[in-house]
Computed example of a mutant assay.
Amino acid sequence: MNTDRKVLVVTGASQGLGEGFVNAYRERGWSVVGNSRSIKASDDSDYITVPGDVGDPEIARRVVNTALDRFGRVDTLINNAGIWRPGPIGSITEELYRRVMATNVDSVFFATQTAVPAMQMQGGGHIVQVLTSLVEHAVQGVPAVLASLSKGACAAATRGLAMELAHDNIRVNAVSLGIIRTPLHEPESLESKKSFAPLNRYGEVSDVVRAVLYLEDSNFVTGEISYVDGGRTAGH
């Protein structure tokens, strides 16, 4: 087991942002453990995939423990898995509520809880949350109470954990996103969503990856929420 090479754990890794994170860190020579519900097996010995619903605490723990068992450490955890289900509060079933909160909040808690002791033992680490700028600036035409509840909780936890874990040299940061071209959005809907950003365009996966890599390389940055939203937050 080579414990000198850095190790990334990323949830929601099979497509979109997660796939972008996997590729970027592998290009840097990191070993990676990736998870999603239906992720395919990897033929790369330094990229291990763990299928399953990370909203299940057992799966969340297993994803992190797979990195520890296979590579001996976890340097960065990116809590990327998320469900986006907009809708008026009256239309949200209890089943949908539970599913969104499990994926968006429970996965973050249990994966992070499992990773932190390992990071403490190895002398440091980095935790990154993926948020939405709707938490800070709601849109009247976009009823998103589930996003506000779940991602808002993760935004607060980012700052709280940054303070709690600073003395362990564990940094905790987040990226808060506007409209990004991922499978989350129907391709035909993207043109009409450009106006959400003052830059009048949507973002690309590469924009988010660059923001995360900035946070990765910035050893004096913790508790930061970096807005990758085309200026939307600044304009409110």
Rank of each mutant, 00 (worst) to 15 (best):
V130I: 15
F21N: 10
T93A: 04
K193R: 15
I83P: 00
P88Q: 02
N2I: 11
I39T: 09
D43P: 02
I78T: 03
A144H: 09
R210L: 08
V145D: 07
R171Q: 14
V64D: 04
G29I: 01
A234Y: 03
D43N: 14
A115D: 12
F21G: 10
E94W: 06
T132E: 09
V63S: 07
A162W: 10
I179F: 06
L146Y: 10
I179M: 08
S31K: 14
I127G: 11
V172G: 10
N79L: 05
L134P: 05
G82S: 04
E216W: 08
R61Y: 04
R26H: 10
S218P: 10
E94Q: 06
N35E: 05
G178I: 02
G124H: 14
G34R: 05
M119L: 12
L184R: 12
L68T: 14
G72P: 09
V9H: 09
E191T: 14
S91L: 12
G55V: 00
R37C: 00
A138I: 12
R201V: 13
V7M: 08
V10Q: 08
S148M: 13
M101C: 03
A174S: 15
I39D: 03
V22A: 06
A174K: 12
D229L: 01
E58Q: 14
L177D: 05
V139C: 08
V32K: 02
I59Y: 01
E191I: 07
P117A: 08
D46C: 06
Q15N: 13
G235N: 14
S36H: 05
V209D: 04
T11R: 02
A81G: 01
V145R: 03
W30H: 09
T182R: 03
R210D: 15
G52A: 01
E188D: 15
L77K: 02
C154R: 06
S14I: 07
L68S: 11
E186N: 13
